[in-house]
């Protein structure tokens, strides 16, 4: 089950780099004026959050979920329906969605904690499909395949903005939230327990690590954060339907982003979104949807076969080499 060589504590350098990156990201709307690029950037932020959420249960705890679109959908639909039906602002709805998703995630965690490898994957896949089928067929609630349109009512107090830069900051807030939670877990007792369980469950249990509790908390937190991403997505796109929220392909893509970036690390999934989403856009524009997905499939295969630790492992190697180079220069100078 060994997935990454990452110790739960990421190097201090990574944190400094993250702080610097955050400052840069805060400045983006001041520099990037191109609407298309900013739009893509917001999509990257949402996907980075979603993959980070997946990584908490998928990467740290090693439970490869193929059903996370369900939680994304629960978030998107909860905040949207509360807004449409009861006039409750998505700023509150996002929490309602997160709580609902956390409960669902905990339930899924309780029923699947015993399952290993492919059995776990298939159970989460089936769970995702059940949610999708309900979403498509419970027309009284979700309007099924027709989807839900968010009317532009009220503005900022309802998470609806006229300016893209406002969505950028909302998306960035979401990313800071998910990455913050992820970092917090990585450096906590829970983080140690999850990684220990992933590396060897029997050894972890014999050392006093409680399996159910740890895995269920991870599943609930992961689901709640995915739901937050769903609510922000709904407010950003202002139209949701089953295909764009709960479809199986979406679950695959969530996992794919985290894997390409480097699962089991805090910044891997973020890096993954920064690579996969723009690449996907570019391929779609150049080659069309089908051919873009051919490349996707190929990429997925090649990455898991040749570099299962993802792009972040390459970055780390590079940083280490650079550091050594600088050190040796310094010595040579002295």
């Amino acid at each position: 089950m060994r997935i990454s060589d990452a110790s739960p504590i990421s190097p201090a350098g990574a944190r400094i780099a993250a702080a610097a990156a955050l400052v840069l990201l805060l400045c983006v709307p001041l520099v990037v004026r191109d609407i298309y690029r900013l739009d893509l950037g917001i999509t990257v932020l949402i996907w980075a959050s979603l993959a980070t959420a997946w990584n908490i249960s998928g990467g740290f705890a090693g439970g490869l979920s193929l059903g996370h679109a369900a939680f994304f959908g629960v978030g998107a639909y909860t905040s949207t329906l509360l807004f449409l039906r009861l006039g409750i602002t998505p700023w509150i709805g996002i929490f309602a969605g997160a709580v609902l998703a956390a409960m669902l995630g905990a339930l899924l965690g309780v029923i699947t904690f015993r399952l290993k490898g492919p059995f776990f994957v298939l159970a989460t896949l089936a769970f995702g499909i059940v949610v999708h089928i309900i979403n498509v067929n419970w027309r009284g609630l979700t309007r099924g395949a027709a989807g839900l349109l968010l009317p532009f009512r009220g503005g900022p107090q309802n998470m609806l903005f006229l300016n893209l830069w406002a969505y950028w900051y909302t998306g960035l807030g979401l990313l800071v939230l998910t990455v913050g939670v992820s970092m917090g877990i990585e450096r906590s007792r829970l983080g140690y327990y999850l990684v220990a369980l992933r590396e060897d469950e029997d050894a972890a249990r014999s050392l006093g690590v409680r399996v159910v509790r740890s895995k269920v908390i991870a599943a609930a937190v992961s689901a709640a954060l995915a739901a937050c991403a769903g609510s922000v997505y709904a407010a950003f796109i202002q139209y949701i339907d089953p295909d764009s929220t709960t479809q199986f392909e979406l679950s695959v893509q969530i996992a794919l982003v985290a894997i390409v970036g480097g699962m089991g690390t805090t910044f891997g999934p973020v890096l993954g979104a920064a690579i996969v989403i723009p690449l996907g856009e570019m391929l779609r524009a150049r080659l069309g949807g089908g051919a873009a997905l051919v490349v996707y499939g190929f990429l997925l295969m090649v990455i898991v076969l040749t570099a299962p630790n993802g792009a972040i492992a390459g970055v780390r190697l590079l940083v280490r080499r650079l550091r050594r180079l600088i050190d040796s220069r310094r010595k040579a100078d002295a």
């Binding site: 490898g117 695959v252 997905l293 295969m301």
Partner: peptide
């Protein structure tokens, strides 16, 4: 090539293949 590797590899290698074949047919 995926046999004996971690679970991610075993699961996502054939999943990637499935995406590839489906969309190759589509294209």
């Amino acid at each position: 090539r995926s046999i004996g590797k971690p679970d991610v590899t075993v699961v996502f290698a054939t999943l990637g293949l499935s995406i590839l074949l489906q969309n190759a047919a589509l294209t």
